[in-house]
Design a protein around this nucleic acid. Structure first.
Lengths: 224, 224
DNA sequence: TAGCTTTTTTAGACAAGTCTAAATATTTTT
DNA sequence: AAAAATATTTAGACTTGTCTAAAAAAGCTA
């Protein structure tokens, strides 16, 4: 139906939308796609001709409903496959992205339907990102970054903003993963680093770069 | 590493090899690939330049060792994915081919390795075809077509030669699947059809077209 | 072996997607 | 508001893989 390239452009535009960008410019998209602005212009014209997005030269683009459907579906497939790789095939969370980038383009409604059943209708992928549902709904993240947390409250790690293997490996090395329990002690004024306690064990210090990319929530089930 | 098109050509050449064709001609390949002879010539030149096969104009082609490796690996991936779709995601054997044609091109050694582990190192796919092993070895089929069977011996259905959905649905409709037990009664001289008994139940008549595409073996475990 | 048929290759075209370099808009600065 | 800087688009080229139509080679046939 749609080419890999088309699906990739639409998915990237959707992800920028989800990050709060309203109208996406050619250069923003070129950077996100690791390609050149001229290539983006060519593709935007093609996608506009297919009515998958609105495109005004020099003004940027905006997904139409049908473009949003394609993009959401591609994102759904990507996140379901990431969940499969981690939950079923023992991949670690820093290894899945590249493979899921390929798997997300497989065309088969039944395949994704059955994968969803097999995985037990997961709501979040291994990085804590919400999996778009079949009707296109994407749950808003109820999580916040660690630097926004109140001190001395029990927190649970729920996801990451940065998905780079380097960052994910860093977290793994310090024993931080989805579900880890921690308590924020204080923000150090000098470098905005944060002192915290992980899993009732030794104290730890995390830089502001790390802290701003770590999604947490307050632990409401601490007496379970 | 190699494009989808290249992998498809190499895989098709390997499959023709496995069916006993030694040197493959341009027209044979064009028919098997559902494409035109001129397109085949172009691709053969490219694959020969990459040393994946030997190509002599007007004489046909022959896989080199490295070409054989790529082809075997693609076939291995195809058959592992078919096994996954049937065993894990509840696909029927007539639904898997098209999806596996896409999945076989996913590039990730770890993915296939882990899939193999998850499936329990299967040796045959849902159509009874042997799954090439990691070292490239492909088990020779110990099965034979039903028209070669001796009468009145217990047989087990092990696979098919024709993989078309029409044929597979036909078999399913008559209750024939991998593992079905049957006994050949007699060959009818008039139309070469075969009378048989399926699973100790009602007698059945199968046309010579069906019989020549059904792989069976003698049941050596009938007292288990 | 000369002529006919079939097979295969070549030549030239096209579509998708990308790129560089040049041209044109837009925005910012002064 | 004109000049400079930045952003975007256009023009033309390249790659991959395909096709049609025409040319060339190979294989038959008599």
């Amino acid at each position: 139906m749609h080419s890999f390239a088309e699906e990739n452009y639409l998915k990237t535009i959707l992800k920028l939308h989800l990050c709060g960008v309203q109208v996406i410019t050619t250069n923003e998209l070129a950077e996100a796609m690791h390609t050149k602005a001229s290539s983006v212009t060519d593709m935007l014209k093609k996608l506009a001709a297919k009515k998958l997005l609105k495109y005004e030269p020099y003004k940027g683009c905006l997904l139409t409903n049908s473009g949003k459907t394609v993009a959401t579906n591609t994102l759904r497939k990507h996140r379901l496959w990431e969940t499969f790789l981690v939950n079923t095939l023992s991949f670690s969370w820093d290894e899945v992205h590249e493979v899921a980038e390929q798997l997300e383009h497989i065309q088969s409604d039944k395949l994704i339907q059955q994968l969803d059943v097999f995985l037990g209708f997961p709501t979040h992928d291994p990085h804590g990102d919400p999996i778009p549902q079949l009707d296109g709904k994407i749950a808003a993240s109820p999580f916040f970054t660690l630097d926004k947390a109140k001190p001395d409250k029990q927190l649970v790690v729920c996801g990451v903003l940065n998905h780079s293997p380097d960052f994910l490996k860093y977290l793994t090395q310090y024993g931080i993963q989805i579900g880890s329990h921690l308590k924020m002690i204080q923000i150090n004024a000098f470098d905005s680093s944060i002192a915290l306690v992980l899993d009732q064990k030794q104290p730890l210090n995390l830089s502001k770069e790390v802290v701003k990319n770590l999604l947490v929530k307050y632990n409401t089930n601490q007496y379970e």
